[in-house]
Amino acid sequence: MSAFSAIGEEREVAQDEFTPSIEPQPTWCPGCGDYGVLKALKGAMAELGKNPEEILLCTGIGCSGKLNSYFDSYGFHTIHGRSLPVARAAKLANDGVEVIAAGGDGDGYGIGGNHFIHTARENHDMTYIVFNNEVFGLTKGQTSPTSPKGHKSKTQPNGNAKTPIRPLSMSLTAGASYVARTAAVNPNQAKEIIKEAIQHDGFSHVDFLTQCPTWNKDAKQYVPYVDIQDSEDYDFDVHDRREAQEAMHETEDALYEGTVLTGRYFVDDERPSYQAEKRARGDMPEGSLAERYFEDGDWERSYDFIDRHA
């Protein structure tokens, strides 16, 4: 019998189960896009039948990091930029747990950029949601890696001289095997995309446009948005890396020109996850590592290996 009976439990899960009793009402500003992520995540998990105790939600620091306080599951509110290394190790150690990492654009594309690149490159079997509001919110409106060129803030008083980062292109180049962009203002698409991301076997990256009504007043509310899968103007194959790249590039440019393009950009179902790659090399146990600590059984000891070294 598993020591982790919440994992894989077959039962109906209601969306309410993810609402905590301590602080059911988030402290995000009225109109904040973060509510959209919370709602989409709850909906996706309920529809997939994932219960709160088989989910580990790892967040970074910022308004997005509060997600943990409003989503009832196992949670790890880590440090700025470091949700990915914590999350991917948890997944390696305890294979059956559904691991989600979430953070802001500063968290994921700025301070944690190195982890983002390498987690995508390795194709860990997990989902990463980036709350992209093009600004630093919790620290009061400073320019972020996705702020438009020319963005003025207290830390960039003469306007941002940097061109914004390209999150989708970067993700694709780094090696993510599922890349999508959605927006808080498009709840149905958001929920569906998060469901797909969770079900995808490999690293799924969702760039989630979350409008900031407080610090990014000039910015669009990400309406109207276009779902590229539904639009006749955009026709490309999400399984084709080159076509995906072109669509991403266009989408990233369009955002700063006032056109909000969303949808699935790249899906690679062929590429094995990191877990599968490691197992194929004998670098990872077939079963769950964490489970072993609860089982009866013999453990290897150094004495049996000493002759190799000494």
């Binding site: 880590t78 290394p85 150690a93 190195n114 390498h118």
Partner: peptide, 22 residues
């Protein structure tokens, strides 16, 4: 499992994550 990772921030964070997860 042994993981050679991108930097030492990640290395320590991975150990924290794996330990947290059992």
């Amino acid at each position: 499992i042994s993981e050679q990772v991108e930097d030492e921030i990640a290395a320590a964070a991975l150990a924290v994550g794996a330990s947290h997860a059992g």
